[in-house]
Structures are given as structure tokens and as C-alpha cells.
């Protein structure tokens, strides 16, 4: 299944294999669109607006744009 790019906007992808689960992106996300457990993280599709604030704030480059849409 793919998350399609909405309104031509970029899509956001979290790379769980590289993630440290630190919560920085969760604290920034204006939409409460990121779910973070002990060692599990994912974007809540319906809430994400592709604002990219999480991409800029990730200290270790784990979150990125994916123009093609993201496999979920």
C-alpha cells in the first residue's frame, strides 16, 4: 500500500532502522501525527500534512521526503 502525495506535496518517510526513538520530532509535530513507542515509530497518515518540520528537526537524518509516496 502506498501513501499517495496529496495536492502535489512532498511525502514524509521515517526510516525505523536508523531511528533512535528520541521523540524530538514528536515534540515538534503540530498535528500529533507521530506515534512513538519504546522502539517503534510511525506516522499517522490521516493527521500528517507534510509540513516537514520533523524532517528539519531530526538530529540524525532519519526522516526524509519521498516524492513518490511511501510504502506502508
Amino acid at each position: 500500500m502506498f501513501r499517495q502525495a496529496k495536492n502535489g506535496k512532498l511525502m514524509i518517510e521515517i526510516l525505523p532502522d536508523k531511528c533512535d526513538f528520541c521523540g524530538c520530532c514528536v515534540g515538534i509535530c503540530p498535528e500529533d501525527a507521530i506515534e512513538l513507542k519504546e522502539a517503534e515509530i510511525f506516522i499517522i497518515d490521516e493527521r500528517c500534512t507534510n509540513c516537514a518540520k520533523c524532517v528539519w528537526s531530526c538530529p540524525i537524518e532519519v526522516i526524509r521526503f519521498n516524492k513518490e509516496g511511501v510504502v506502508v
Binding site: G23, C24, V26, G27, C29, K53, S57, P59, I60
Partner: peptide
């Protein structure tokens, strides 16, 4: 609940902060 601060959000308190105010650390 730390930097995530979701408990406050669920209670209707605006807890998310602007990314310029977040010191992103490693």
C-alpha cells in the same frame, strides 16, 4: 512524558514547540 509531551496535548494543552526552539542533539 518528556520532549514528546503528548499527555498534555490529549488534555487540550498546546504543547508542541516551534522547530526553531528545539535544540536537536546528538
Amino acid at each position: 512524558d518528556g520532549v514528546e509531551s503528548r499527555v498534555g496535548r490529549w488534555a487540550g494543552i498546546k504543547t508542541h514547540i516551534h522547530f526553531k526552539d528545539m535544540e536537536c542533539c546528538t
